[in-house]
């Protein structure tokens, strides 16, 4: 299918350019590291407090980092008007979104997985036993951030005050993702860890609804 082959070609381009510049991954990892370390300085959490507040702090730092990471997603397509070249080349404009949100999810997930051990050490929580379940929560949460984030990145790239526009539009919308991801992560960090299927289902539902909306209306976001 042209949609998936176009998306795969574009995803390859996104990965190649990021591999060459390493701009997004480096800045996001450093940002999350700074936030997580600063939070750990502000209070000396006991094991119980870490389990209670840690997941929220972790997802807040992921969310802020994502708003940084998503900013250049469409902005850098404007430098040489490459977005027009893409629009002229792909059969289905959704391929552009599909590639970009896949790349964003991948970058976010990679950053989060890199940060988990540091978070575990600083906040004295055990993640090894629940690592696969944790990755599942991170994946669904990251997808929930990346889908609306990619759409709003396309909108804000054409707006004035674009640097402010993306976080202003995105962060309130992501409140349900923050809540569900925090609860699902919290469940896995409890003394008797358990996978919170209700919150995972909520995250999956959020992802499906926003992905469908992007598929239906994404084309209009790319119009001049």
């Amino acid at each position: 299918m042209a949609l998936f082959s176009n998306a795969a070609v574009l995803l390859g381009k996104e990965l190649r350019t990021e591999y060459r510049s390493r701009e997004l991954l480096t800045t996001t990892v450093v940002f999350i590291l700074v936030v997580v370390v600063l939070f750990s300085f502000t209070f000396d959490p006991s094991a119980g407090e870490s389990r209670r507040f840690g997941p929220g702090l972790l997802w807040l730092s992921f969310l802020f980092a994502a708003s940084l990471m998503l900013q250049p997603c469409f902005l850098r397509e404007q430098n040489n008007d490459t977005l027009s070249a893409l629009r002229l080349s792909v059969r289905d404009p959704f391929a552009i979104f599909l590639a970009k949100l896949s790349a964003n999810t991948l970058f976010l997930l990679l950053t989060e997985v890199l940060m988990l051990p540091i978070f575990a050490v600083l906040y004295n929580v055990h993640i090894l036993a629940v690592f696969p379940q944790l990755v599942l929560v991170l994946f669904l949460g990251s997808l929930g951030v990346a889908i609306p984030g990619t759409a709003f990145s396309a909108i804000s790239a054409q707006a004035r005050m674009r640097e402010l526009m993306l976080p202003l539009l995105l962060l309130p919308l992501l409140t349900p993702v923050l809540l569900a991801s925090t609860e699902a992560t919290g469940g896995l960090l409890e003394e008797h860890p358990g996978l919170r299927v209700d919150w995972l289902g909520f995250l999956a539902g959020f992802d499906v609804v926003f992905l469908t909306a992007l598929w239906l209306f994404g084309e209009y976001l790319l119009e001049e």
Partner: peptide
Amino acid sequence: MVYDELTAEENLLLFAKL
């Protein structure tokens, strides 16, 4: 309308494949 971070050949291959 081409990518600065790609080579001339990579740019043409990208758009040809699309």
